[in-house]
């Protein structure tokens, strides 16, 4: 698994995590290059379906970065994100996907180092888990949903 390069999708809110990622850049804090970020205004914009789609389409891990509790630019978007992530973690495990593949991190605009560390840790974790394999549905189950 040594040369496995995971494909990681990141979502970052504009006001905190994205700014923190920029600060990591300005400060030249290195981290692994696997993650690609999609910028959204608030982590609350991250529709659970985006996350499911990312896994479905081939992401090995999904990273979500928002403002610290109480700091969301839109007051409470991050609380909603947190609830959704908890809800999704349960759903992922029932789909046979390790819930650790979805990670939520609070990163403020001043936390460049914390951002770099979090991405480094998460990338290492996904490398450990290996490529995502979505379990094949059992044949009987497939028949069950077949129209009569």
């Amino acid at each position: 698994m040594a040369d496995f390069e995971p494909r990681i999708v990141g979502f970052a809110c504009n006001w905190c995590c994205y700014a923190g990622a920029d600060l990591a850049g300005t400060s030249r804090f290195n981290y692994p290059p696997n993650m690609r970020i999609i910028r959204v205004m608030c982590s609350g914009r991250i529709d659970p379906s985006f996350i499911l789609k990312a896994f479905h389409d081939g992401a090995d891990g999904v990273f979500i970065g928002g403002c610290h509790p109480g700091d969301c630019h839109y007051m409470s978007g991050n609380y909603k994100t947190q609830k959704r992530v908890v809800m999704l973690a349960g759903l992922l495990s029932s789909l046979g996907i390790e819930p650790e593949r979805l990670h939520l991190e609070w990163v403020s605009a001043a936390e460049g180092q914390q951002f770099a560390d979090a991405v480094t840790r998460f990338t290492a974790r996904i490398k450990e888990l290996g490529p995502l394999r979505i379990p094949h549905p059992k044949v009987e189950d497939e028949h069950a949903i077949e129209p009569a």
Partner: peptide, 27 residues
Amino acid sequence: MRHYTDAQVEAQLDALTGHQSVAEKVE
């Protein structure tokens, strides 16, 4: 959500993940 529509975000997701088809991912 204007400027961050579902279609716009999903297009980015497709572009970032879309190389591997689902079939390949299924064990």
